[in-house]
């Protein structure tokens, strides 16, 4: 069999294209399948947290007692959250807001009178699609596989993009050294320093030990229900099945993991 020069070039070129094309397709498909997530995701799967988890909370309007701040005080103690009197500089993990501010779009002319003016505990919603994570330029904040939006204070440069991005005001900046405002100090856990942003972490260190978050544990009314939103038998899913629940500004598409039982 005689091959002309033209045939030889044709066959050689064609086989090179085929080999290269196969590799290209393989790389593309591998890239598409790989999980596109920050450093947190790989780890949590490795380090004990199951991927089938999404921690969430339900806050019961009916049970939450007026004037009670057990959850807030427990949080301050658990995480060395400073109490700064200046409201422009204060640091908030879980705090109180008037109903109208928690649900600004739910205002009705003749709504339930007992809700108007009442104050509700609010905290980080640990969104399914957290805007704060998307804007962080240093990946100092990320969403773990168990749904917790957490912070690496070592990496935070204090740019405050996340504070601008968060529609719930759940992030606070340390304008000065918070230590003088922390009383009493929990010596087991670190404080924060001047120039970093901080936020609620759903008590990830307590969850790792199999404990409930400090605020949930401190609530004597059992108004805070915590659990795995992906587990149909969990306490939080049972509460959500039994009652009408609302999220804060769900129209923004952030997918909050904190629900309010009306």
């Amino acid at each position: 069999m005689k091959i002309t020069r033209k045939d030889f070039l044709r066959i050689a070129g064609g086989s090179m294209l085929a080999a290269g094309g196969g590799k290209f397709v393989k790389t593309i498909s591998a890239a598409a399948q790989a999980p596109s997530a920050g450093p947190g995701s790989k780890s949590a799967a490795k380090g004990g947290g199951t991927t089938a988890q999404r921690w969430g909370m339900a806050i019961d309007f009916e049970k939450c007692r007026k004037g009670c701040d057990d959850c807030i005080r427990a949080c301050r103690l658990a995480h060395n959250v400073p109490q700064i009197p200046d409201s422009a500089r204060e640091v908030k993990w879980i705090w109180e807001e008037p109903y109208e501010k928690v649900f600004p779009s739910q205002r009705t002319d003749y709504g339930r009178q007992d809700l108007a003016g009442s104050r509700l505990p609010v905290l980080c919603n640990h969104c399914a699609d957290p805007p704060c994570v998307r804007v962080c330029p240093t990946q100092a904040t990320w969403k773990r596989d168990d749904g917790i939006v957490t912070m690496d204070y070592h990496r935070c440069i204090g740019c405050r993009y996340c504070m601008v991005a968060c529609p719930y005001g759940s992030r606070s900046f340390n304008w000065f050294d918070p230590r003088p405002y922390i009383k009493p100090v929990n010596s087991q856990l670190p404080t924060r320093t001047k120039g970093v942003v901080e936020k609620c972490n759903f008590c990830e260190e307590r969850l790792a030990d199999g404990l409930l978050p400090a605020c949930v544990e401190a609530c004597q009314q059992k108004a805070l229900v915590f659990g795995n939103l992906n587990d149909e038998g969990s306490a939080v899913r049972q509460a959500l099945r039994a009652r009408y629940a609302v999220q804060r500004q769900p129209e923004l598409g952030t997918g909050p993991s904190v629900f309010y039982l009306v």
């Binding site: 005080r73 427990a74 301050r76 103690l77 204070y153 050294d177 009493p184 100090v185 929990n186 010596s187 087991q188 856990l189 670190p190 404080t191 924060r192 320093t193 001047k194 401190a218």
Partner: peptide, 17 residues
């Protein structure tokens, strides 16, 4: 600046209260 240089035992809810 953040980590504490003494671990004198956990603060309690009672002292917080």
């Amino acid at each position: 600046d953040c980590h504490q240089d003494s671990s004198s035992g956990p603060a309690t809810m009672a002292s917080a209260t």
